[in-house]
């Protein structure tokens, strides 16, 4: 039976740090509802984060929680998962944390296909440091470090992570909080590297600098620009140009890393037997 969402929170630490209307609380709610829908035992969930707005999430969660260094959440999480494969290890971090400084760890964790669920709180900005552009900031947008308009192209993070070898990749958005939660539940259930990009509004820095003065305006933008995978398949590239696709974007079955390591342990044991 579904528990009240506050069952998963360290209530004495609330209210949380995120700004009024910030989407991160909605994404976190989707994460907790996914955990609840899978009826995971709180003693068997470990949440790891890096540095940035999104990475403050674990402090509020009643699990084993670890707030690490900028960009390195996945590397810390890999160590935890290797030594306790039965633990559900979930990484929550922002787009700057995962795709900029943490990019190397992101593609290697996907290549290894270690059973970690990663939710990228993508607000396309560095919020904690108040408004610099990130690898996910769309071209032309304004930021404190793009005062003349951003000239770079953002990653297609889902394509990148899927190409690197992930078993599950999907994108959701705060406007569609319920499907986002189902996507995250599917990611957690995947036995391999699972990645969900969650489009999340940052009214304080991204919105204010880009003519969307509050969360409602930004959520409205999501509503107008999100297309489901089904709908997208019927649209031309031109029609898709300023849209973003939500839903399951990539799945495959590959051996999971901690299980493959069991083969090494078996081989090592056999070698010892042969020598005895």
């Amino acid at each position: 039976m579904a528990k009240p969402i506050t069952y998963y929170l360290r209530k004495d630490k609330m209210p949380h740090i995120w700004c009024e209307g910030c989407g991160h609380g909605i994404v976190l709610g989707a994460v907790l509802r996914a955990i609840d829908s899978l009826e995971l035992d709180k003693n068997n969930v470990c949440v790891v984060s890096g540095i940035g707005c999104a990475s403050r999430a674990p402090g509020y969660l009643d699990f084993d929680t670890l707030h690490t260094t900028h960009g390195r959440a996945l590397a810390f999480a890999t160590g935890i998962k290797m030594m306790k494969p039965k633990l559900n290890v979930i990484v929550l971090a922002g787009d700057g944390d995962l795709a900029a400084i943490g990019g190397n760890h992101l593609i290697h964790a996907a290549r290894r296909n270690i059973n970690l669920t990663t939710v990228c709180f993508n607000n396309s900005i560095y919020g904690m440091t108040s408004g610099q552009y990130s690898p996910m900031t769309p071209t032309g947008k304004m930021a404190t470090t793009a005062p003349y308009g951003h000239i770079e192209e953002p990653f297609d993070l889902c394509d990148l992570v899927f190409a690197a070898g992930a078993s599950f990749v999907g994108r959701g958005a705060t406007y569609h909080a319920r499907p986002l939660s189902r996507l995250i539940a599917k990611a957690i259930s995947t036995d391999g590297f699972a990645f969900v990009e969650a489009i999340s509004q940052c009214p304080t820095y991204f919105g204010r600098r880009n003519k969307m003065r509050n969360a409602l305006a930004m959520l409205d933008w999501q509503k107008e620009h999100a297309v489901t995978t089904k709908a997208a398949s019927k649209l031309s590239p031109e029609e898709l140009a300023d849209k973003f696709v939500i839903g399951e974007l990539g799945t495959r079955t590959r051996p999971e890393y901690t299980k493959r390591y069991e083969d090494i342990i078996a081989a090592a044991a056999k070698e010892t037997d042969d020598n005895v």
């Binding site: 009240p4 969402i5 506050t6 609330m14 609380g25 909605i26 709610g29 509802r33 319920r178 939660s181």
Partner: peptide
């Protein structure tokens, strides 16, 4: 409202003893 609240500030009160699912009708 509970789903979209960024601050976990809204709690849906389950209706009577007929325990509808947490999210009521889709």
């Amino acid at each position: 409202c509970e789903m979209m609240c960024p601050d976990f500030a809204i709690t849906l009160v389950p209706a009577g003893d007929k325990m509808e699912s947490r999210f009521g009708r889709l």
